[in-house]
Amino acid sequence: MMTAVNAPAPAVAGGKERPWIFHAADNVWSALQGLLPLIALLLLWQMLGDSRSPYFPPPSTWAAALIDRTNSGDLIPAVLVTLQSVAAALILATSLGVGIGGLIGASPALARCLGPTLEFLRTLPPPTIVPVAALIIGVNETMKLFVIVFAALWPVLLNTTLGVRSLHPTLLEAARSLQLGVVARMTKIFLPALLPSILTGVRVAAPLAIIVSLLAEMLTLMPGLGALLLMAQRNFNAAEVFGLLTVVGSFGFILNAALAAFESWALMPQGRT
């Protein structure tokens, strides 16, 4: 039995901490504070706007239009379809991006082989992919998923590659000298160490996924928020267009807040939040 020459400081282990949920609530609150100018603008619009204006109907008419759309059974399914596409594509893009990015980061040879090709594919604007994908795959959910993944993949892939390259050599050597197997090294060391990089990539990818999802829906009129928006525009229903725009905005806002909360929670043990 042995003790330190200098006595250790009073134990802090097990002490009460602010749970991560408070961090998340803080995030939401500060985001809402940031929305105050927008809310003020909308209120002003409501007070000064003319409810018969064909181009700039005030917010109360947007709400009425949205309620109409909800009652006709269009809005909720459209939101769900878009949400489903975005979520599925983000999960797929993250898995692919982490896999490919990890391999490229780990192998300079692979980086040399694939680098230029990936660089070329990355610079293709997603809107130009839609017609090509529609031709090859057809106008269906698979095509939509493909196009969204194609756009959302790059931020995750690049961040993972950079993350792997900046892993500290000592960490890699520690993993080697502890003689962990391949699977244990992946799950216990590499993935947690890369988590901050990966999540940053996902945060960048999420808005891209929404944009491309709406774009694909608008270009192909496949069910979803994008198609609804285009239809409203074609019917010159300005109130509905603005209403749907609000829905799209909130959609992105909530998705981002959810990802931020997840990040706070996931990185809490690393002391990064």
Binding site: T170, L171, A174, R176, S177, A193, L195, Q270
Partner: peptide, 30 residues
């Protein structure tokens, strides 16, 4: 290559430990 029965302690402890694991789980790692 690293062989069983040997354990290495690195000078750079900050990078040799897993910051997302508690002391107990860091010690258990090997």
């Amino acid at each position: 290559s690293p062989v069983p029965g040997m354990a290495m302690v690195f000078q750079d402890y900050a990078h040799a430990l897993l910051m997302w694991r508690t002391v107990r789980r860091n010690v258990a790692l090997g």
